[in-house]
Design a protein around this nucleic acid. Structure first.
Lengths: 336, 336
DNA sequence: TTGAAAGCGCTAACAA
DNA sequence: TTGTTAGCGCTTTCAA
């Protein structure tokens, strides 16, 4: 049986109120009493029952996060890094993290609703926003504090952090143009994601500005996995007039594209350029090292968590909608 | 203000007791009353306050999991897949998942203790066990239900699931021997992990049985990251008499090793063999596809979670200590 | 079939 | 400086 303040009260001969106050360091308890209570609490190995505290305080000190998993072989470095960011930050601020795994769809919203209505969380972290994201709408309706990684295309006012994907792609395309590439193909993530449209726009606009265009058969779609990157790159390479450069909408697909190139006996960076987006840890140690656009995922996780905690605690935010400037990381996968 | 059973009681003119019973489908409530109550509850958008339910029930219906993160750029496909397994299973059984991130060390145990003593979780999932794992000891002392992924070297009786890493490595080494390799090097994970000793033993014993040995300079140590795999493989290749085959203790280091080989202009699978362990999703789409030992991480996550839930619910387990037989996946990274 | 009342462990307003 | 009391929202025993 775990120790409660009642047990401590009995043992010290004080009331539970006094015990509670002593343990919280209130100054309306005499120093001797406080010291005695604190000591006995320690001796008895007391740990407060958080459930009871939270029920009373009407606060859960818990942040919710729903991991959008896709199938069993779910593996995305993006999420482990992001999770590390939010987990560490939450811990530092004394918050717990309640994680659910659920692919996008019907049941997803049900979970958000249940966690909020069941008063299990004080707020939510939303990741990988979609153009018309029902989660954002729901969370706004319910009046739950939340911060998102990413924007939507609806004109909704809500707090988020995002990277300027269009600008990132623009830098990448400029880089390729400067290297002399004219036949540039793009493997896009599914356009339901706002970041996918953003990045695609960056590619298209920059090509157009250079008097080029993104031909229809140079625009293909993957599902963010390495496997799809490989498959789509293979299709591009089979074109009568294959591209000389392939940009993938994320690093994972870029790795797949590199494999596709290498499978044909060609050399990435010499025979064909490949680039990604995210700058995951693997990008640096891949062969050849991947040219990509850096996205500080860990840091974004931290920022979002800090913003959310401030909102929950009613503190003012300097800025609620943050768009980070991307950084181009030139490595060897696009040649010199 | 969220709706409580009190509100429903007021609205229906019944007592909160009756409301509670009706909502739980007890049969000592008249059908009409029940129906009326259930309907009003729905109309009012009632969702039970889980905190209150749990405080009363003295059960949290929550599983704890502490993600051992190492530094900010933490990214390991192992964990995302494992997390998907435990998250999905927990959800199916109506359990929540409380995730903390914390590198191994002092504070780690503090978190385990706090979650248990604070009655925030009914049980724990422990991952990546170490030879003398203080977490296991602590959890046993506290009498908390838990299931581990991996064994320890202490002779403790506790429930776990593990794969026979020695057998896996044995198969891998046999495969390389059959291909004619005699100079086989091994990049081992840190030996504090039980699985690392296990795998190393498999390598050594199989080589010894074949009349060979693992020379001292063919045994190097990485930290499970791709970066360390690259660095250690580079060192091996610099040896006066470099190995013809490099086994890495996990896939991530194997990918790094492949990069090291390729950086020198050599071809993996032709000039030198590289093999891994885990069979992460990337193994299949890498170039060349990686020969490795399959570990059903998602499935293990599911098994462990189901075992833990059974223990919590007091149901009997058929077997509490499960050791899975590994499977060798031959791809192209070791040649024909 | 229903309701009153106690209690899960805690905090806090109020009184002494 | 301390204790009494009410109450957070719920479940459950007991009595009606």
């Amino acid at each position: 049986m775990p120790v409660t303040i009642k047990d401590i009260a009995k043992r010290t001969g004080k009331s539970i109120t006094t015990v509670s106050r002593a343990l919280h360091g209130y100054d309306d308890v005499s120093p001797e009493t406080r010291e005695m209570i604190v000591r006995t609490a320690e001796e008895m190995g007391y740990t407060p029952n958080l459930l009871a505290q939270r029920l009373q305080k009407q606060r859960t000190d818990t942040l919710g996060f729903i991991l959008p998993t896709f199938g069993p072989r779910f593996s995305d470095p993006f999420f482990s890094e992001f999770l590390a960011g939010i987990g560490n930050t939450a811990g530092e601020y004394g918050y717990d993290l309640l994680v659910s795994t659920q692919p996008p769809g019907e049941k997803e919203l049900e979970i958000y609703r249940k966690k909020v209505m069941g008063r299990q969380v004080d707020g939510f972290i939303v990741v990988r926003t979609r153009c018309h994201d029902p989660r954002i709408q729901l969370l706004r309706e319910m009046g739950t504090p939340f911060v998102a990684f990413g924007r939507t295309e609806d004109d909704l006012d809500y707090p988020f952090v995002d990277e300027d994907g269009a600008a990132g792609m623009s830098m990448l395309v400029e880089h390729l143009l400067k290297l002399g590439h004219r036949r540039i193909a793009y493997i896009s993530p599914p356009l339901e994601y706002t970041f996918a449209r953003d990045r695609l726009r960056g590619v298209q606009e920059t090509l157009t500005a250079a008097g080029l265009a993104l031909p229809e058969d140079y625009l293909v779609f993957g599902d963010l996995t390495q496997r799809s990157g490989l498959a789509e790159a293979a299709r591009l390479l089979n074109l009568p007039e294959p591209p000389t450069a392939i940009i993938a909408g994320n690093d994972l697909m870029a790795f797949g594209a590199m494999s596709a190139v290498q499978q044909r006996g060609m050399q990435v960076g010499r025979d064909i350029a490949v680039a990604g987006f995210d700058d995951t840890p693997m990008a640096e140690t891949a062969h050849p090292p991947l040219t990509t656009v850096h996205q500080p995922i860990y840091k974004i996780g931290r920022m979002i968590t800090e913003m959310l905690i401030k909102i929950i605690q009613g503190e003012p935010l300097e800025s609620t909608q943050i768009i980070l400037k991307p950084q181009l990381i030139v490595r060897q996968s696009c040649g010199e």
